[in-house]
């Protein structure tokens, strides 16, 4: 385990910047949820956001695919760029953006449809398949990538809600990657899962890094240490520290980071 992490980290240093955020502020009605966050997230890397509850890590994650647009009272200012393009530009259609920046949620939320239709939903609405054979292929590829194919291939027409919690979450991951996103956002994807399912999903996240830039919000420091190459520590809406994961966990620069890691705040 230790060795693997080292090898991965060596790879990650050569990556390009995928997402670049400057001076991001978020207000919910009167609350100032995110204060002036600057961060550069690398491509083909797993970046973990950690911090105590209510620190703004999920809020910031939702800024990256503009899911905060769906909340009436949320106001986002500042500059977030993906591949150099400002995603809050009025010309940007959030619908197109979200196809490019997929999201997996805290609780598995499969649609009340069959497993096949769950995965095919994104490609269908975005018109990614020319015909049925294409769609079949996308579904199979996505399910394979999400390590669910072997369990699901014989019951593609069964409802997605009938799967176990861990399978449901992998189905949601398959559903997200079926639209061929470039970035995958994961909002505490394992918090509703048992340890075995968590291990499977973590393994999967490590696989996904080959194809996407993955940003994961997590409550568990161990999980951040296991799956991520870079870690950002949020506290009270501020980005306190952002660095290589092993540096954050072995030699944090900020006393607040150190307190959190050692369990004094949180």
């Amino acid at each position: 385990m230790e060795d693997m992490v080292h090898v991965d980290r060596a790879m990650s240093t050569e990556q390009d910047i995928k997402i670049s955020a400057k001076g991001v502020q978020v207000h919910y009605a009167d609350t100032h949820a995110i204060r002036d966050v600057d961060v550069d997230i690398d491509d083909k890397t797993v970046t973990a956001f950690i911090g105590p509850s209510g620190c703004g890590k999920s809020t910031f994650l939702r800024c990256i695919n503009r899911m905060n647009d769906t909340i009436d009272i949320a106001r986002v200012t500042g500059d977030i760029r993906i591949d150099g393009e400002d995603i809050y530009d009025p010309k940007v259609d959030p619908v197109q953006l979200r196809a490019k920046v997929g999201m997996v949620f805290q609780k598995p939320n499969p649609f009340p449809k069959s497993i096949y239709d769950n995965v095919a939903y994104g490609p269908k609405i975005h018109g990614l398949a020319r015909n049925k054979a294409d769609l079949d292929e996308i579904v199979e590829k996505s399910l394979r990538k999400a390590a669910l194919w072997d369990e699901a291939k014989d019951r593609l027409t069964a409802p997605g809600t009938g799967l176990s919690g861990g399978q449901q979450q992998r189905l949601c991951i398959a559903r997200a990657i079926a639209t061929a996103p470039e970035v995958l956002l994961m909002d505490e994807p394992c918090s509703a899962l048992d340890p075995i399912a968590t291990a499977q999903v973590e393994e999967l996240i490590d696989e996904l890094r080959r194809s996407f830039s993955v940003v994961i919000v997590t409550h568990s420091m161990q999980q951040a240490a296991r799956v991520s190459q870079k870690t950002a520590f949020f506290h009270l809406g501020n980005l306190v520290e952002y660095d290589d994961t092993d540096k954050i966990f072995t030699n944090p620069q900020d006393p607040r980071t150190e307190s959190y890691i050692s369990g004094r705040i949180g």
Binding site: D83, E85, K91, D93, V95, Q96, L97, I125, G127
Partner: peptide, 17 residues
């Protein structure tokens, strides 16, 4: 298949309509 976010394609236009 790199597409810019700043230009919306025909399909998105149709969907928005």
């Amino acid at each position: 298949m790199k597409t810019s976010l700043l230009a919306s394609d025909a399909r998105t236009k149709k969907r928005n309509a």
